[in-house]
Amino acid sequence: MSPKHLIINCDDFGQSPPMNEAIMHLLEERKVSSATIMAPAPGFEEAADWCKRRGQTNIGLHLTLTSEFDAIRWRSLTGDPSLHDESGHMHKTVEEFELRADTRAVMKELVAQYEAAKRFRIPLSHADNHMGSLYGMATGRSHIPHVLKQCAKWKLPFRLFRKVHPTDPLLASIPGVERTVAKASALAGVLGVAIPDYLLSHPFHIVEGESYERFKQSMIAKMYDLPEGISETYIHPAVEDARMLEQVPHWEKRVWEFKLMLDDDFAYAIKDAGVILTNYDYIRVNGRASRVGSAFTLARELLRKSKIGV
């Protein structure tokens, strides 16, 4: 049996002080693999300065084009009008972003976010995307080809995936996702961008009837059902905070995710299931596909699309 490697990434590092506190603690205790930092968000400088002082090496860039909560809004770094809503902040929804954002402005903003992290001398380990805004899941307008080309220039792995796990509650439910993934992962291979094999999701919100114990058991079950290869899952951990609990939807689940990473039952399940926790340094070495094989796959998928359209 092949090894089962897992990356646990903390998204939204830099969103707010309560989230920063939780992520810093988990990184210090080595309870998670990595975190990805949000350059436009209000807690960015606190998070970036901490990374710089500690010489933290497992920090990625959370490419951020949306600002979803009324209580915590942010603007782009570049100020392009197409990246903002009528309030002057980044769009609240992925659909609004996909419909209104100019592609050149998007890429200029992503470069500005990369440069903001580099100014703090953070040795970025990888990149991923806040709310999946670049994937085209809302309207079909994807920026993934542009982003992969940029990651190739930066020499950074990117959060994508080669295969869809059949039990994933979000990804497996998307119509035609296998073909979309085949094309995107093949392009990553052609460009030399390293990616995981699988991305494992769970609902961001509290589902009906969910409690901490039910959430914990569902996450433990994922450890025993983990596919062979390299998988990534992500969390948005935060400490308890009265204001956030009142003003940010589902903040209680952010606290659950923090609590889960410190839970002995979850740590035991990882070991008992034979899961090897790793990070994007491992993906950088082991997550690249053959460029020749990827080129054949990409050509096949593009030709298939052409034939279907005839």
Rank of each mutant, 00 (worst) to 15 (best):
H205N: 15
R119H: 14
Y224C: 10
C10N: 14
S67F: 11
E232F: 02
L77S: 08
W256H: 05
K52F: 11
F13H: 09
V106A: 02
N279M: 05
W50Y: 12
M223T: 03
Y224K: 13
P196H: 00
M223C: 11
M24A: 05
V181K: 03
S133T: 14
L170S: 11
I7T: 01
M90V: 09
P17Y: 00
R179A: 15
D128V: 06
P157A: 01
E301F: 08
G287D: 01
I220N: 03
I174A: 06
Q217C: 02
P203Q: 09
Q217N: 14
K183V: 12
A39S: 10
V111C: 08
K307Y: 10
E213D: 15
I72N: 04
D264L: 13
S16G: 11
L187P: 00
T180I: 12
P145V: 14
L303G: 15
G55H: 06
L124S: 04
R73L: 08
T297G: 07
H91F: 10
A71L: 05
F13G: 02
D197K: 01
V32G: 02
F215M: 13
E240L: 10
N286R: 10
T180M: 09
K92A: 15
D197T: 04
K31E: 01
M137H: 10
P157H: 04
F158H: 05
C10K: 06
L245V: 07
E240Q: 08
E240A: 14
A22R: 12
A242E: 15
A182R: 12
D264H: 13
D11H: 12
S133Y: 06
H146Y: 12
A221G: 11
T103M: 11
L26Q: 03
G176M: 10
T278C: 03
M1Y: 08
A47D: 09
I23F: 09
E21P: 08
L200H: 02
E45W: 05
G189L: 07
M19I: 14
K253V: 12
S201Y: 03
K118L: 14
F69N: 04
L110C: 15
L63D: 08
Y234W: 15
W154N: 04
V106D: 00
K31M: 11
A48I: 06
H143L: 14
L200P: 02
A116H: 00
V94C: 11
P17C: 08
G209F: 14
Q247G: 05
L63F: 08
Y198M: 03
I72F: 03
G176T: 09
L63N: 12
F158S: 01
M219Y: 04
M223W: 06
I122E: 00
G132R: 00
A188D: 01
K149F: 10
R304H: 11
D168R: 01
A138P: 10
S142V: 08
T278H: 00
C10P: 09
Y135A: 13
E98T: 03
K216G: 09
